[in-house]
């Protein structure tokens, strides 16, 4: 099974893939409205605000955790050299 290169989510159903396209390597949550993959900064901010909204973390802690999570993912490896 494929996992999203930008957030690590397993993609099992067609609806998990960006634009319902199983050929894509990223998921529906990591796509922009136009279907392109979000940038590093967009993904970091989206992940951090998701963490703040759903888990109530402090904003700086949420941004740090978002970066730590992204560090392990293939889409962002060039940002952590």
């Amino acid at each position: 099974m494929k996992t999203c290169i930008a957030c690590g989510m397993p993609m099992e159903d067609i609806s998990d893939f960006a634009g319902n396209d199983p050929g894509k390597d990223y998921c529906v949550h990591c796509a922009r409205p136009d279907g392109e993959m979000q940038s590093f900064e967009e993904k970091r901010e989206n992940l951090a605000s998701f963490i703040v909204r759903t888990q109530g973390f402090n904003e700086n802690a949420a941004r740090k955790i978002a970066e730590d999570m992204m560090r392990k993912l293939p889409a962002w490896k060039d940002y952590f050299c």
């Binding site: 759903t54 730590d68 999570m69 392990k72």
Partner: peptide, 20 residues
């Protein structure tokens, strides 16, 4: 080590996505 915090956050964020 810091990896423990990331592991914890990965697990809880997966749950938080479905929970929310």
């Amino acid at each position: 080590p810091d990896e423990a915090k990331t592991t914890f956050a990965v697990i809880q964020s997966t749950l938080a996505l479905h929970f929310s």
